[in-house]
């Protein structure tokens, strides 16, 4: 697998170097193209900061971030992002929310009007794959939390980004809805094979979805453990009760226990 994302000895402090305990310290990792990687760790450990560094929204104090062979020095375009909060625009319908990236992104905005019919068809198809068929013209407030998050996933993928950054996207959902959305995400990823970095503090979620899991220590965030997940795909809820799955979650849990105690 070719390296798509490389972080080399990244250190980052909010408010600039030397002002506070670094959010991230000496973090290095390599992610292959099309790989699904999860970052787990206690809250406030700088996992989200790593996402911002990868996407170029925030510069590191030291170290180098490279994506697709190029050093990240300004916000990357063609990245999809989704957060714990769905942040849909309340005055737009679900469909219009999903179309937003195509209206504003550098590579699509010029041709948006011309290709509108094509884009609308693509958005409808994507909404259908996540189970939102029939809700295209509903306002976000008419959707449940899980449905809003599905729409948010569609918005993050409509422009076919090479890289999807997910910052605890399912954290605010109830357990059943969350597990449903694992399957939605797994299916989308298997169909499209974009690269994913998923930040989460749910170890089962990490093992269920990722090819590789990194454990990040509490602040200052360091990468303390790396664990490949070789379980066959597609993973199913049934497989979460297999011994292999349970052992992996258990091993990660032990490492989290260590970093929290440290």
């Amino acid at each position: 697998m070719t390296a798509f994302i490389v972080l080399e000895r990244i250190t980052m402090t909010y408010g600039g170097a030397g002002t506070d305990t670094p959010a991230v310290e000496d973090a290095s990792l390599t992610i292959g193209r099309g790989e699904f990687v999860a970052l787990v760790g206690p809250s406030g450990c700088g996992k989200s900061s790593l996402l911002k560094i990868v996407s170029g929204l925030m510069p590191p104090d030291s170290g180098i971030a490279r994506v697709d062979g190029e050093t990240v020095s300004r916000p990357l375009t063609m990245v999809g992002m989704a957060f714990q909060n769905a942040t849909l625009l309340p005055w737009r319908t679900t469909l219009e929310n999903v179309l937003l990236p195509l209206e504003v992104s550098r590579s699509h905005r010029g041709s948006f009007r011309r290709k509108r019919a094509e884009h609308v068809a693509a958005a409808r198809a994507l909404l259908k794959t996540v189970g939102l068929e029939g809700y295209e013209d509903h306002a976000p407030y008419e959707l449940s939390g899980g449905m809003q998050q599905r729409a948010s996933l569609c918005r993050s993928l409509i422009h076919a980004p090479d890289l999807l950054l997910l910052d605890e996207p399912f954290a605010a959902l109830d357990a059943f809805t969350r597990e449903e959305l694992w399957d939605v995400l797994q299916e989308l990823w298997q169909a499209r094979k974009f690269t994913v970095i998923l930040v989460t503090h749910d170890l089962r979620e990490a093992v269920y979805l990722a090819d590789r899991v990194y454990v990040v220590s509490k602040r200052p965030g360091r990468i303390v453990y790396e664990r490949p997940v070789a379980l066959p795909r597609p993973r199913t809820l049934e497989s979460t009760f297999d011994q292999d799955f349970i052992d992996l979650v258990h091993a990660l849990r032990d490492h989290i226990g260590e970093v929290r105690a440290a």
Partner: peptide
């Protein structure tokens, strides 16, 4: 978060 979503799409300030 919304600002981050838009910036990571390369959206212009005017957009």
């Amino acid at each position: 978060e919304l600002r981050d979503v838009l910036r990571s799409l390369g959206a212009r300030k005017i957009d």
